[in-house]
Design a protein around this nucleic acid. Structure first.
Lengths: 207, 207
DNA sequence: CATTTTCGCATAACAGCGTTATAGATATCC
DNA sequence: GGATATCTATAACGCTGTTATGCGAAAATG
């Protein structure tokens, strides 16, 4: 399936897997120079192919962007999967939130495309793209369910609770990246806004 | 300053204030057909002028988009200013949140540009653009301060509290617009996610 | 009132864009 | 070896943002 590249053994073809390299080049361009730098010709130059590669492998630039979004969610999933699962599931939830925020700060442009291209790119996310994000979200739901099962949270819908935590964290990170949390005097918006907010939500959920 | 248009009284010039009409046309194109429809030639055709008008009045398309963002924040401010100020300031806060969400649903594309173009458009918001949003935000801070002064909220930084409410509501609305709140079985994410989340935050703030 | 300066818009051109059609090269299969 | 399917390079189309140029009307100056 994966086209295994043109594996002529002797010639100077040190690279293969053009689709994956296109995705990575696009993600890197997005992260380093922003969306304006994302053009088929630029991509072709970066990867060392022609603009046609974008069309043979993806069908067009929008589809490549969708693949980049999937890649972004995969990185987010990696970030969150790296959070160890301890016996303090409440602390695990906090660590997941920090991982979420850390990932957004590490790839701000990619993060913006993941959640911004939905309506800004002109097309809405379809079910499969949503599922990419929802898969990451499931990690959060699982940790929430563990917290309920441990008797820390009172019984409830883990799905709805996880959505609360996601909404709050996501909203804070978005405003933070947009520049609204720099504020005038506040040295650390995390201490003054994010943590109290999450503490309030969590306290209401405690058994 | 405002160029007062070419006010030749007798001729067939039924329209004036080209800059404002460009902003409105851009906002309408954005809302109706998405960002892809926003081109200088299309704008010129809509307003009945040439592409140069964009450059003489704004300097370029990005600057026009910034003006549209300001227009979007102004509409948001209108939505929120329409919320009456009662003696139940806690209910006022809830009403402000509903107005925020209603505005986002009424102008989803504009909302996406307002908070998405920050990083997605390639340029960051500068201080004056941020102030446009912060002005709206000040309405929320004022209502929060009233709630503190009324002894409903325990003493605290109204700024930080308002930021919590904004983050939570904004995050929910963003995920909702992106399609993540449609969910499988949940009939109303507002009842299951938004309201419990805000209730948790608010409860932690009560005196 | 006449003249000059300023301002706003139309036209045309340039480079770059996404996309497509076409043709050539390479790998796979019979 | 020949046929078939894949991938890619080239060139072209229509579109984009942007700029330079010129014209005409308003505003300012005398």
């Amino acid at each position: 399936m994966a086209s295994v590249g043109r594996a002529r053994v002797a010639k100077v073809t040190p690279t293969a897997d053009v689709p994956q390299r296109l995705i990575e080049a696009a993600a890197r361009l997005l992260a380093d120079e922003g969306p304006a730098a994302l053009s088929t010709r630029r991509l072709a130059a970066e990867v060392g192919t022609s603009t046609m590669a974008v069309y043979t492998h993806f069908g067009g630039l929008p589809e490549l962007v969708k693949a980049v979004v999937r890649e972004g969610f995969k990185r987010l999933a990696d970030h969150m999967a790296a959070v160890p699962e301890t016996d303090d599931s409440l602390a695990d939830l906090a660590a997941l939130g920090e991982a979420y925020r850390a990932n957004a700060h590490d790839n701000p442009q990619l993060y913006a495309v993941m959640f911004g291209s939905a309506s800004l790119g002109g097309y809405r996310l379809h079910d499969d793209e949503l599922d990419e994000g929802r898969y990451t979200y499931d990690v959060l739901v699982a940790a929430t369910q563990r917290t309920i099962d441990a008797g820390i949270f009172k019984p409830g819908d883990a799905n709805a609770i996880a959505a609360q935590l996601w909404s709050a964290t996501h909203g804070f990170v978005m405003l933070e990246l947009a520049g609204y949390m720099a504020a005038d005097r506040e040295p650390d918006a995390v201490d003054d806004v994010l943590n109290p907010m999450l503490a309030g939500i969590v306290t209401a959920l405690l058994a």
